[in-house]
Design a protein around this nucleic acid. Sequence first.
DNA 1: CAACGGACCTGCCTGC
DNA 2: TGCAGGCAGGTCCGTT
Length: 271
Amino acid sequence: MPELPEVETTRRGIAPHALGQRVTQVIVRNPRLRQPVSPQLATALAGQTIHAIDRRGKYLLLRSSAGTVIIHLGMSGNLRLLPANIPAEKHDHVDMVLASGQCLRLRDPRRFGTVVWTEDDPLQHALLRNLGPEPLDNNFTEAHLYQSSRGRTLSVKQFIMDSHIVTGVGNIYASESLFLAGIHPGCSAGRIALKRYGRLTTAIKQVLSAAIAQGGTTLRDFYNGEGRPGYFQQQLNVYGRASEPCHSCQRPIAQLRQGQRSTFYCMGCQT
DNA sequence: CAACGGACCTGCCTGC
DNA sequence: TGCAGGCAGGTCCGTT
């Protein structure tokens, strides 16, 4: 489900209500996520105060003085803040109850998400250590994409979806960014010139920023920390628009399959 | 090392 | 109505 804009939207939604709050209780109803919920989470986090909520790529970091909860929402997860007395539903796997009477509730039907506890520097955790630059930071540049793609034969779409190259760009925003940059998703990453990577870098930053401003993209089941959907789907140019007319040239949007994922692009605008 | 397919899960939609 | 098949916003792992 969530790419960087949806995770950032979640972070902004929960931060005002959760920052400075003490966690009174942690309820783990089902620890069987893609990797098991840390067994020590409930004991370690209870009694701690959340003093920062950060994001690294698609990971959320709930920081306390004793340690950090690292959360990934997988394909289908959401993290919402709601009154703790609202009954949990089928796929509500983890509650972090706050002193305010609200709770942070993780719902994840497919259980591809992750909830782990670490007492070390979370940025050095195995899940985060090798991530590429943040796409909205100044150290994400065309030079980085250009240099790290030399000698690579895979498609540029799969290349920018590799979190070790740049983190946070998922299936929707990869297609959208390539459309904005005018680059065919099947181009071999290693054969793209520096100048084109300049356009792609700009496009990625633009698309992600615009999506954050709209509260993310809600196709099916994304809701932010306060339970509201995003609106960026109204501005999608190619994703999910197979055979509909291109907003720029009117030719029908094409669809193909890359690495078991659907890709959408315009045959006229992207070369 | 890089590329690729498969694995992990459930829900929803389509078509027979 | 029931059932099979395919698809879905992510990432890791094993094999070549």
